[in-house]
Design a protein around this nucleic acid. Structure first.
Lengths: 210, 210, 210, 210
DNA sequence: AATGAATGAGTTTTCATTCAT
DNA sequence: AATGAATGAAAACTCATTCAT
């Protein structure tokens, strides 16, 4: 359905994508206005709908664009696959932050899409959610060295718990960086990494005395 | 501003509250239609605005109603204030789940309000957010027995980490129960409590061997 | 229809009159809101309509109130009936300005009512217009000493012309005093009287050389 | 902002303009209904707002349309620039009456706009008022032969007085012609011109004996 | 006499989408 | 491929007025 759009030259295409992105992220799906989009993008009403067919399709297109971008970008960073699950999680967190810093609008769109899925797009969102998780989770959890784990610990549940905890730490960082456009500075990255390390120690060796 | 509304008999009042709640939770603030509300509630358009003045005010009223309800309900459960922070967190988690199970719409409204605050209500939401946290956080963290903590652990950071982790566990439960209307069964509660206990053990004594 | 209203004690009555006056003058008939009136006057909706029956009637009541007030006030000034038409016109002009300065809202209501009659009140306004003119014009034009007029001048047309010219001078003063609440100072009155005199000279003896 | 509208064919454009004009003049700005306009003009609601953007803009468009029309029409009459100010004023008065007779609705709109400016349009109206006056006043008062004036007369004040007097005469004619749609007949014009002449004589040579 | 809850038609404006050109 | 005029349902909200109490 977007063939004609895809054939556009890069400049025009990116202009339209950015305008749409801005509108949807700033106002949310419902309040985003296709009227505003065509004005800001300098194209005609008919053309926008010729490209995408409907407002929902514009949104889904942006979503897929964001997903593709982030996955590609993610793998472009050379992740040394440490056998230490904690090391690995930390690396991923830092990469995520970098990417979010590079394309804040794209990142925000994606995050909010999963939190508040626009009415009528639930199924489409679920499809994407499942795809992302089924493709990415194995990468995180394969070739882990479990010999370090305490014997009493249920490995599956532990991995789930670790993911949950660090996802939420990571979300805290993102929120505090909300609105920022610039990249993270080296200092900021260092502070973040140190905090990560402290938290990792807590979860590795526990908070309480034996 | 809602004096007129407050004076209504319980039946009529609850009818209106429930209709509004349903509309706002189902469609979100922007898509919620005051037209639909008056039709479903069987009252005139003028009357709805006589009661609340504006769509935003209806929403804020529901929010305050939800907050008041949950706080009152929360304290009605006899929380044995254990000195063990983990015990205490678990108790609170279970209670929260119970309440959410009892009034799922009310609960959902409240949660989503903090995640995606409707445009123009940011200040009003912040007020409510601060009130809730300033009133409730101390209750969670006072009279904790820190003697159990490992000496190397920074207490402040540890508490923050614990909160973060268990909030996200708790959100996972809520999400899996999404859409449910009925109460949690005893069995379900037991399963949940057992999972909580496992996670608490992980965070207390760590995941890795020393 | 206003019997119950007339029976009210002076304080309450004036409160209501002033509130209505303020609303109608500030916003004009269409935009004036009976809702605002009852709130500002501290009375109930039902009572306002019990007193006046309709918004139009409130307006007509104020109009009659204004007309009665101004006529009474006008005659309370001891008009020395000079036989000189120009002298007489000047006196009337000064008195009008004084009255307008005392009750600016009441005055403005009356003036605007004749300029832009609210839709649906045309007949009622015409009645009042005719009454005022039929009662007041004779007073202005009786016992005039016509011996001073040039023989070539048509007396009827001359009187009409004089009235027209001085009414418009007088309106100019009122407009420049628009928004003022306080009385005219002695100096201001003197300036005005001098200007009047100059204009009177022009119309008495003409502008051009013979 | 009205490009779309301006491109319309004359017939359709005039239909819409006339419908709007009728509505605004008949009911005034506040009571004029865009609903009525679209029904009477046989266009969709969206289209009206596509053309003008807002009710206020429709009104301002009509105003500018009226101003442009009258100025163009005014200059199309071949005004012989007599050095006699009275001659010149009379010519202008006659021309004004002719124009008002040709387009009574357009004329009424313009006159009322200056008397009762709709709330919120004060600034826009002032702009137009100043433009009209700064463009037209000089034309009236340049190249006047002041040698005919009496020596005692203050020329500036005299001109002001003359303007005031003849504006009000002219307004009297307009009011008496209110509601009329047809053109002035030759006879009517002649009567008017004669009356003008009489009044001009009065103000030239005065009303009283020396 | 006095209340104020209740009405519902009315207001302007925005919206995504279509389609003839 | 591209335009942009045209649609009309829907939105939130206000209004003067009524009437049971």
């Amino acid at each position: 359905m977007n063939q004609t759009f895809e054939k556009l030259n890069t400049e025009k295409k990116e202009k339209i994508i950015n305008v749409c992105l801005e509108e949807f992220v700033q106002k949310g799906f419902e309040l985003a206005s296709t009227n505003n989009i065509v004005v800001k993008a300098g194209i005609s009403k008919g053309l926008l709908f010729h490209y995408f067919g409907s407002k929902k399709n514009i949104y889904l297109y942006l979503l897929d664009y964001a997903i593709e971008y982030f996955i590609k970008k993610f793998y472009s960073y050379d992740v040394k696959a440490s056998g230490d699950i904690f090391e690995r999680i930390m690396q991923r967190g830092v990469i995520k932050m970098k990417i979010a810093g590079e394309k804040p609008l794209l990142y925000k769109l994606l995050m909010e899409a999963f939190v508040v899925t626009p009415a009528g797009l639930e199924d489409e969102m679920n499809l994407r959610y499942q795809k992302i998780y089924s493709e990415n989770m194995p990468v995180v959890f394969e070739d882990i060295d479990y010999s370090l784990f305490r014997d009493e610990v249920d490995i599956k549940k532990a991995l789930e718990f670790i993911t949950l905890c660090f996802d939420s730490i990571y979300n805290k960082y993102i929120k505090s960086a909300k609105g920022r456009t610039a990249q993270l500075s080296l200092e900021e990255t260092e502070i973040m990494v140190n905090e990560y390390k402290e938290h990792i120690d807590m979860i590795k060796y526990g908070i309480c005395k034996k």
